[in-house]
Amino acid sequence: MAEYRDDISDETAALAKRAADRLRTPERLAPSFDDRLMRSVRAEAADLYPPGSGSSHSWRGARLQFSPLGALALAAGIAAVAVLSTLAINSRVTTSARAPAQSVAKAVPSTDTVNLVRFVFVDANARSVELVGDFNEWTKGANKLQLSGAPGVWSVSVPLSPGRHEYAFIINGSRWVADPLAMKSSDDFGTESSVIRIGSPTRSTT
């Protein structure tokens, strides 16, 4: 009980303990709970997790899958890489707390339907850095950052469609890091991610 008390008086702590004892009795949901839930789950399952899609689970480190659309986007991305010096679409520079800050470079979005976005993460102690986001279905291993010359500077370029995207970095295969320089997303799962907006050709990019 000592841990509970802090600056709570003995009498108050004792009463709180007795109240808690009353509240600790187990609770059960209705027997139909599981059946009702699984009906809802099955109704959504086909779209969310079609059979055979399991290897793309973000934490299973499985193979990367390409849809025809994805391959098209990748092809556009490769084309953009070839002319990166002139397009230089977007760039995110993220610095881990242990490394000195870096500047964020921005550029005008491409007029192509696919924008190549360069994500940069700076961490001198990182052994690996991966990018996960809605654009790769939060798939670990889909977008690995590579060391790009300077010590501790990791980067990867990803083709993104215009619109709002959420992303985060995974350091050393397990540590989830949101981009400290970007707007945070408030999701329902307690997981902090970052937001990047890719503007349409007629809008500015943030």
């Binding site: 789950v41 099955r42 997790y49 055979g52 899609s53 399991g54 290897s55 793309s56 689970h57 299973r60």
Partner: peptide, 9 residues
């Protein structure tokens, strides 16, 4: 979870 993501709902 891996099985679910693979379609074993």
């Amino acid at each position: 979870i891996a099985d679910i993501l693979g379609g074993d709902v």
